[in-house]
Structures are given as C-alpha cells and as structure tokens.
Amino acid sequence: MHERLKVAYRNELASARAEEARGDCQLAFTHLERAHILSQRFALAHTATHLRMLRLGLRLSDGREVRGQITRALAALVFSRIWVPVGNTGRATVSALAPMTVPADLAEVLS
C-alpha cells in the first residue's frame, strides 16, 4: 500500500472509531465502507476492515451484518489478490459481488 493510500485508509479507520465513540454507528459504518474501498486489494487490510464491520454489527446486534461480515472476512483473505468488485462498500446490505462507483476523492487516492 503506497503512503498516500495508507494515510487515507488509516484516516477512515480513525474517523470510524471516533464516530462509534460518539454513538453514531451509521456514520462509523460510512467511514468503514470508505476504508473498505481503499483496502480491497490488500488482503490483511481488507480482512481487518471486515472484522471492524463485524465488531460494529455485533455492537448493534445486527444479525444480518454479523453473518455477512463473517463470510466476507473469510473471502477477503482468499480473494483480495485475485479479484474484487471495485468500489463495493463491503456491507452485508449489498451484494458481495457487485462493483460500485468509487467516490471521486477515493478514486484519486487509488489512481
């Protein structure tokens, strides 16, 4: 992961932690989704992002999110270097296989 990407990824994770601490779990998920987009090509960071989503799903007692994140975390370990659906936000509410539009600011970091 190049330095600019690493900084952006870590900033999204820090923002997610801050929002969760404030009690805004939906905004925390938004930052985790952005971290997911940034980390998709890097197996360990990608998996770590799914594990953070899993933890947040557990905090919210969201069974669908928990189940979805367990399978996505396992898949991230295996498929990150082979194929990922570019721009996918990683939430259990979207298809794990669907490519999505990458936000412009993240696309710039990824280029």
Rank of each mutant, 00 (worst) to 15 (best):
E3R: 13
E3S: 11
K6Q: 15
K6A: 14
V7T: 14
V7K: 15
A8K: 12
A8H: 08
R10T: 01
R10Y: 08
R10P: 02
R10C: 00
L13C: 04
A14V: 00
S15R: 11
S15T: 02
A16W: 05
A18F: 01
A18S: 11
E19C: 12
E20K: 12
G23S: 07
G23M: 11
C25T: 15
C25D: 13
C25R: 15
A28E: 10
T30I: 11
H31P: 07
E33V: 08
R34I: 08
I37P: 07
I37T: 07
L38C: 09
L38M: 09
S39K: 01
F42S: 09
F42Q: 11
A45W: 13
A45R: 07
H46Q: 05
A48D: 12
A48S: 14
H50E: 01
L51I: 10
L51Q: 08
R55I: 02
G57I: 02
R59W: 01
R59Y: 03
L60V: 03
S61N: 12
D62M: 01
E65C: 09
R67C: 12
G68P: 04
Q69F: 10
R72Y: 08
R72H: 03
A73T: 10
A73P: 02
L74G: 12
A76G: 04
R81M: 12
W83V: 10
W83P: 01
G87M: 09
G90D: 02
G90Y: 01
R91P: 01
R91W: 01
A92F: 05
T93K: 03
T93Q: 07
T93I: 05
S95K: 01
S95Y: 04
L97V: 09
A98D: 03
M100F: 06
M100N: 05
M100Q: 15
P103Y: 11
D105M: 10
A107V: 09
A107D: 11
E108V: 09
V109F: 10
S111Q: 13
